[in-house]
Nucleic acid binder design. Structure first.
Lengths: 343, 343
DNA sequence: CTGTTAGCGCATTCAG
DNA sequence: CTGAATGCGCTAACAG
């Protein structure tokens, strides 16, 4: 309320100089006696140091800027959790800016962040462009990308190839040979290219009769649902959605048509979201550890801030979550045993 | 990179004074000729004004702080979208801090935000305490709460009572009389008290045979799933989950037990999330317009910043999304017509 | 319309 | 260990 209390007033009240108060606030070097007087004065006045003045001097904000494409995403939530888990103990705060999936706004947010004096930036980009690559070196502060990759930039991302490969291998070993991969545009390198390629190579490895048909869709339920009839027309033994959301749209379509999963066709996803556990059949999926990913990204920023070099790319573990939507073709069909939600 | 260019250097390069450059950057009042010279100098040097120095002078950050309980929530995402939609055109930026559902951290975040000089704060609180009420007036800046209510504080929230009432009325008119309300603890005033009360009053209005049984659960799939057998034991005509997630857990349980929805029992939720459209049967729900809510909250901050008074509480419209999970008891059962995803 | 003069609140030399 | 003095980069009166 009322008057904004400054360091000067604290000093007067404590009967010491501004410098002493400043020292008290920072390194130390204050006698026990004055230390106590300053402490009392601060408590009494409710003094809080002016953020801007402090930053103007120190040239250090203890702020890490985060640019994310959108908020309404479980993935992003996990990522931020992981970031915060590392940054908070290190005394850094997080400043989050949302790009609304707009690439122009993403660039704008990065600039804005640097202008606001953050010490480093983590960008969960939807697509790194040449403009990104050009902008980053001009910023003269650590910028770490997640989710996508780009030569010359520091990118920490999940290993989409490995995830795809894991799923492909799993399905092949269960006797599947005819797959439809419901993927997204190749303009998305991580999901559209690497995840798919990993799947294809894992699925086809040493299996000459294996065949993968690609059907393109968007990231949302609806476009997957709309493309599902086309997928089904290939009579696959398994439909592999590139994301859990895609798979959910497909599942919905199959259910409407009375096509039983996994009896008539298996369905799998990527992401390992909780919601995959409550649908029926519960969705088998490859889960990514986005929290770990966020932690790695945060650690990379911290390392760079300390002047250490970090690898240009890093990866994060993936794991298979076996639920109910996949049929083991080596055995006669038996209805999956359902017993509770398998998170 | 290299040297941080300041307003002084721009001035020298343009052959004008610092003030002229400053004026160029702000209101105007610069001759056409010098304006051009300054523009060129800025372009040449790549000058960007120092955020901290500027804020130190103006005492205005053009920053609105947002405190949210968590990131991995669709609700929160919508809310932020709505906030940004109002704030951005007004020249304000948004600084988001996440409290990880920790009430102590929430308070901490609010303090931290004010210390960092934001002009106003929006708090999507999980629970407003006396400590909140005590802290807010000390901040001497506009603080708007969403999601929860507290006397004396400015709270913009969805009308949970109305939402519950809407659902209650709808079900009653369809001939339902035996309901189980799968709710959360009354310590959550919005969901645990108001939403439930609205439902009960809407459901029972003028219907002497109506009965509502309350079963308590948590907010997650799993606890709803675990409590579902208890709910079913009352043989209700409809189970009303206090949130869509709760309903999804219940749906999963009913499916596992082979209990057909809506033939044997209807199920409804609150929230109107998209995922409710892809499960089967698609979930009938009351949707809240969180984007509008965010917009209202942002507008309230702006109004307060202009010195205008705003109402202590505001509401936001709710709407019923009729999908497939509710049976019309006034008619013999017919399988719901499914044709596409009903978002 | 423009340059000069003062600080904003704090951290930091530099002499004590 | 401490206080006085000096800007950080910018904006805002103030006289031109």
């Amino acid at each position: 309320m009322e008057h904004k209390v400054t360091i000067t007033e604290v000093a007067e009240l404590a009967g010491v100089s501004k410098s002493t108060v400043s020292r008290y606030l920072n390194q130390g070097y204050v006698s026990e006696e004055k230390r106590e007087r300053v402490r009392a004065a601060i408590a009494q006045t409710g003094f809080r140091s002016n953020f801007f003045a402090k930053r103007l001097k120190t040239r250090e904000s203890k702020l890490i800027g985060i640019v994310i494409p959108r908020m309404d995403s479980v993935t992003v939530g996990r990522l931020l959790s992981g970031i915060d888990r590392i940054l908070a103990p290190a005394g850094y705060q997080v400043l989050v800016l949302v790009s609304q999936l707009d690439q122009e706004k993403e660039l704008e947010n990065i600039r804005s962040l640097q202008q606001q004096g953050v010490d480093g930036i983590i960008v969960d980009s939807v697509g790194i462009t040449a403009e990104h690559a050009q902008l980053v070196p001009q910023l003269s502060l650590p910028v770490i990308f997640t989710g996508q990759q780009y030569p010359g930039l520091i990118c920490i991302k999940v290993n989409d190839y490995q995830a795809g490969h894991l799923m492909g291998t799993y399905l092949r070993e269960l006797g599947h040979t005819q797959a439809v991969f419901a993927g997204v545009s190749e303009s998305d390198r991580a999901v559209g290219q690497e995840r798919k390629q990993g799947f294809v190579e894992g699925f086809c490895a040493g299996s000459p009769e294996a065949r993968v048909t690609f059907v393109q869709t968007g990231f949302d339920f609806l476009s997957a649902y709309d493309a599902a009839s086309s997928m089904w027309s290939y009579h696959p033994s398994v439909i592999v959605g590139a994301t859990d959301n895609i798979s959910l749209g497909i599942l919905r379509y199959l259910h409407e048509r009375g096509i039983r999963v996994p009896e008539q066709v298996s369905v799998t996803g990527f992401g390992g979201y909780d919601v995959g556990a409550v649908v029926y059949p519960a969705l088998t999926s490859v889960a990514f550890d986005f929290e770990l990913l966020g932690g790695r990204a945060a650690q990379a920023v911290l390392d760079r801030l300390r002047g250490e070099k970090v690898d240009l790319t890093g990866v994060s573990p993936v794991s298979l979550i076996q639920r109910e939507s996949v049929r083991d073709l080596r055995q006669p069909f038996t209805s999956p045993v359902v017993n509770g939600i398998m998170l």
